[in-house]
Simulated scan of single mutants.
Amino acid sequence: MLPDLLSKLYRFGLPALILLSITAVSAQQNEPQEQEETTEKAPDTYEYASPSYRIERSKINISEPVSRETLQRDDLSHYLKPANVMPLLAGPEDFITLIKNELTGNSKGVAILLPDWQQGATAANSLNYLRKVLPDQGWTTIAIQPYEKPANYPSIALKPEQQQEENNTSLEQYREKLSAMMTAVMEKAKSYPGIFLVIAQGSHAAVLTDLYQQEKVPLPNALVVLSSFMPTAEENQAYAKALAQTELPVLDISLKRDHPLAITNAGLRRAHADKEMKASYRQRILNNFTTGYYPEESLLREINSWLRYEGW
């Protein structure tokens, strides 16, 4: 290509060279204007495959994120039968419960299932299996869709004193909500015959035990706690002491492969129960393959054998 260009320049001489220089200078002068026009249009609109299809930034509506609790409530109301989904009122707020009546002629009582916070009423790691199988053994089950964990808990403040103060404030507010919730559930449970069994999981078991110890919630006949712990050492100490001092018969179950805090604090609760000489306390550790997931048949067998031992 270069030899052809040189031959043309040689043929036409100096005028051709001048004309070529003018053309190059004109192209350089026009190029910045095109770039400026492109830069001015970019912030205002977005162009897609079709030039006629435009979206202005001012017309794009971005929805606020929906809370986990709202999503879980909507899923329960949408996918489950309306006869099994029953909203209850706790003070100014309502919450969702899943009720499944016992399917035998000999009613044993009501099993109230409280998942850990951030978990759903149909969480597959433990309680959903009990919700389905206990009615075949004479239990009416009431599974609760819990409230969300407090937003600022545990505290991330720099000073330990400030952390403790913020944690106490958050937990106190949550205890009031949980107290109203469990009181409403116990009132509903009284419409069924038999004893009252509460099966609580995770941190909810610890918070609920504290409410039982302070007599802020009507007491059931028996309490089962699953993988229970609190995020801080001070709260775990208080929980172990409250569990050992409560008059409720307690079955304390955890897993071989569990949350590290659940494994660590199981021994602490056992030590406090021995110190208080709590006779109606049994602790079991189940072998499992998947961390946090209970072996279903082993869990049911432990609960049934303990209930028979307690006389139910």
Rank of each mutant, 00 (worst) to 15 (best):
S227I: 08
I144G: 02
A151E: 11
L208F: 13
N167F: 00
L171V: 11
V185Y: 02
L208S: 03
T140F: 03
Y192P: 04
I144A: 05
S203Y: 04
I199A: 02
P150A: 09
E165K: 01
G202W: 02
S155H: 01
I156D: 15
E166H: 01
T169H: 10
Q214C: 07
E172Y: 09
L208M: 12
L171A: 07
K216R: 15
I156R: 13
A200T: 09
L211R: 09
K159W: 03
D210W: 06
S228F: 05
H204W: 07
L219F: 10
Q201W: 07
K149F: 05
T140P: 03
T141Y: 03
K216F: 08
G194L: 10
Q145N: 12
V198N: 05
N168T: 05
Q213D: 09
I195P: 03
K177A: 11
K159I: 01
P220Y: 09
L211K: 10
S191D: 09
L178F: 10
L219V: 14
L171C: 03
L211M: 14
G194D: 06
D210S: 15
V185N: 07
Y212R: 13
S227R: 12
H204M: 13
A206N: 12
S170M: 11
Q162L: 01
T209G: 14
N221T: 08
L158F: 14
K149Y: 11
E176K: 10
Y153A: 01
E161K: 00
F196D: 10
A180S: 15
S155Y: 00
T183I: 06
T141S: 06
K149Q: 13
R175D: 11
G194Y: 07
F196G: 09
L211A: 14
K188M: 14
P154F: 02
N167Q: 01
Y212T: 06
Q164W: 00
A151W: 11
V225R: 06
Y174R: 15
A180F: 07
T209I: 08
N167M: 00
Y192K: 08
S227T: 14
Q214S: 15
Q145I: 10
A205Q: 08
R175V: 09
S170D: 02
E172S: 14
E176R: 04
V224Q: 04
Q173S: 15
A151C: 08
M181Y: 05
S179C: 14
Q162G: 00
A184K: 05
A205D: 04
P150E: 07
S179I: 13
V207Y: 02
Y153K: 02
P193N: 13
V217W: 11
Q162N: 04
V225Y: 04
Y174P: 02
M181F: 05
F196H: 10
N152C: 03
E176T: 12
E215I: 08
A151R: 13
Q164L: 00
